[in-house]
């Protein structure tokens, strides 16, 4: 119990952010039209690519001779970049298609 309280005290700011972000996340996409569901999913997918920052930190902190950390960290950077770059490019292509469709229907 004490450990939990101590942890909450240590991470007070972070916990506030978590709670606020839950509400922001729900509020922000609350009125999305159903045609945009897939692009929004794809966009959100790209945004959670922020894990790449963790990968960069892990990679940058790895000791030069700790090969387990180096290899795992390198893999993490590669797949993280895939998530970010691929995610944003796919979303852009989706929305491009969406725009074209909308114009032609008008």
């Amino acid at each position: 119990m004490e450990a939990i309280l101590a942890w909450i005290a240590d991470n007070q700011q972070m916990i506030y952010i978590v709670i606020l972000m839950i509400f922001v996340g729900i509020e922000v996409i609350g009125h999305v039209p159903s045609v945009l569901h897939t692009p929004l999913m794809s966009g959100a997918n790209a945004i959670h690519g922020v894990v790449i920052i963790g990968a960069i930190i892990v990679m940058g902190k790895a000791e030069p001779h700790n090969y387990v950390a180096l290899i795992l960290g390198f893999l993490a950077v590669v797949v993280g970049t895939l998530n970010v770059v691929g995610g944003f490019v796919v979303t852009d292509r989706m929305l491009e298609m969406f725009k074209g469709k909308k114009k032609s229907s008008k």
């Binding site: 972070m14 952010i17 978590v18 972000m21 839950i22 509400f23 922001v24 996340g25 729900i26 922000v28 996409i29 609350g30 999305v32 569901h37 929004l40 999913m41 959100a44 997918n45 945004i47 959670h48 922020v50 894990v51 920052i53 963790g54």
Partner: peptide
């Protein structure tokens, strides 16, 4: 990372 992650976590669940 926290903001991005939780934002997507919440928005993704609602979505």
């Amino acid at each position: 990372m926290l903001t991005g992650g939780i934002l997507v976590g919440a928005a993704g669940t609602l979505l």
